[in-house]
Write a protein that binds this DNA or RNA. Structure first.
Lengths: 104, 104
DNA sequence: ACGGTTACTTTCCAGATTGGAAAATAGCGT
DNA sequence: ACGCTATTTTCCAATCTGGAAAGTAACCGT
């Protein structure tokens, strides 16, 4: 098992999951989705950017400069690997206790 | 989404996943599986016991008193719910980016 | 019964995280 | 240049995780 500590924290998991579904998303959308403050979101995306998992791009939108976030290919595979590791854990549990898979 | 903070930390996730596959397990097995020190494992299981997720039982084995850990029904459902929440995240991502489901 | 040993448990402590508030900065329209 | 909006950084408190080491408990051999 290899859970990725950069992705594992709940807020990061939500960020990665959301970004995995789109090409990119606005800072505000992520902030609302994760429910964290702007300063906290800023720090999370910075942390993910520093390891090369996401790209922070500034682009004008509605007259204002908005920040767009997108997972990098590396970020996508890291998230994929993380999910795979989580599924492996869940699968083992499900194999032995079927009700776990259905959520008891 | 409702990730359970008592279960989410990597070590706890491993503990829960392992215990979900059996009726109970020995302290030593869990310590080896998780790779943490005895003091740390002791603290994790205590934390999980305090919220009612697992039961700590002492019983003689091989002449020595060993500690056996088992998930309670509550612990099993909490783990199940947690896994379900994680799968929901992964599923959303997989729906939009198929390669994520296969692990890129 | 006493001492050593095994098996945890608790205490002590350091370091890393996470989070929010507030101050600082950046880009734009006016 | 000024004000407003959108982040970003700084400051700080709280919580967490982890290991080492001391403490406790039960059992074996003598």
């Amino acid at each position: 098992m290899s859970l990725d500590s950069v992705i594992h924290p709940p807020a990061r998991l939500q960020i990665a999951a959301l970004l995995a579904t789109v090409t990119d998303a606005e800072f505000a959308l992520l902030r609302e989705t994760t429910g964290v403050s702007d300063s906290v979101l800023s720090k999370h995306i910075k942390a993910m950017e520093e390891v090369g998992y996401l790209r922070i791009r500034k682009a004008p939108a509605g007259g204002k400069t908005r920040t767009w976030l997108a997972l990098t290919p590396l970020g996508r595979s890291a998230f994929a690997a993380h999910v795979k590791a989580l599924q492996a854990l869940a699968a083992a549990a499900a194999a032995a206790a079927p009700e776990v898979a259905k959520a008891g």
